[in-house]
Amino acid sequence: MTIPSEMNALLLTGDGFADKPSGPVLEAMEPYVVPGRIGVPTPKPTQVLIKVSLSSINPSDVSFIKGQYGQPRVKGQPAGFEGVGTVVAAGDDPAAQKLVGKRVAFATGTSNWGAWAEYAVSEAAACIPLIDGVRDEDGAAMIINPITALAMFDIVREAGEKAFVLTAGASQLSKLMMGVARDEGFRPIAIVRRDEQIPLLKQAGAAHGLNSEAADFGKSLKEVMQAEKPRIFLDALTGPVAGTIFDAMPRHARWIVYGRMDPATTPIPQPGQLIFMYKRIEGFWLVEWMRSTPPERKLQAIMEAQKRFADGRWVTDITAIVPLSEAMKRVPEELAKPNGKVLIRP
């Protein structure tokens, strides 16, 4: 195919990091990205050029374009960490060359050529050739949420306790993880902020669903903690609710932070628990898991994720697929709707 010299993309307006955090909600696109034309990039030796079919919008994307993620922005470059498409060109490295012509899920990483564009650049090692049966809608969100879900469930499995706690229980990532937990006989305790989300949690595999905004949340939380005694807390929120949950957990509890959806100060109500109850606070970042995990486990996780999507055990819940030309107006309003992913189609 003929590759054009220029492409349409959503380009970053900011450089580096923001001076002050502004929270996880994307009220408007204009302060952070603008539509524009930019030259189609040439992949480096270990990279591939992908004609994008669909790209995903994750909480990490919102944090990134607002300058609140652990990776600096480069002004004028396309945003978007993840997508699905066809490899149309590659660098000289044999691993990159093998991907030409293949449909892949990809992560753009630190290439600075993001997926909210007609073409994107990815390291060949960050591409997953997709098996038949995996929809583009699932492929567009194949890496960040599914692999994170499997990687963090490894932590739960290794800890040995059947019950564990997770916040943002209605998120796509949490629903994927609860599906695995249900299949293996584990008991997720999912925290949400609306009563109407609780039936969805039970359908997804939660043993308990708690509304952190309910008047009796503290009482219900203590009762569940006493009954289930979970020791793993997978937290996408931080903030006061997370502090309350950690305080209620038993001895040897591990609070594993993988997101910061609540920009408020995160309290530790009783710091002495870290000393006398042997509680721990740590972080999880998929990039580091990919770096440090043995190749055989990474391949196993990638194939498990694909098979779960292909056979229907996992399905990406879609709120909207927004044309790139309409993204500036529609993305914030679609992201405000609960329970599903928003994708961009170039």
Rank of each mutant, 00 (worst) to 15 (best):
V165R: 05
A151M: 03
D136L: 04
F153S: 13
P146F: 10
E161W: 07
D132L: 12
A141F: 05
D136G: 08
F164V: 08
A151N: 06
I155F: 07
R157T: 11
E137H: 09
D154Y: 05
R135H: 08
A151S: 15
K162P: 00
K162G: 06
K162R: 14
F164R: 07
D136V: 05
A159S: 14
D154P: 01
F153Y: 13
R135K: 15
K162F: 00
I128Y: 12
D136R: 13
A151L: 06
F153R: 10
G160N: 08
L150M: 13
P129Q: 06
R135N: 11
P146Q: 05
A168N: 04
A141K: 06
I144H: 08
G160V: 07
G133H: 08
E158N: 13
A159E: 15
L130S: 08
I155N: 03
T148D: 00
L166F: 02
A159G: 12
I155S: 03
E158V: 14
A149F: 10
F153P: 09
I144E: 03
T148S: 13
E161M: 05
F164T: 05
D132I: 03
D154H: 13
I155G: 07
I147W: 11
D136H: 09
F153G: 10
A168R: 02
V134K: 07
C127K: 11
L130Y: 00
M152D: 04
A168E: 00
E161S: 13
F153Q: 07
R135Y: 00
A140I: 09
C127V: 12
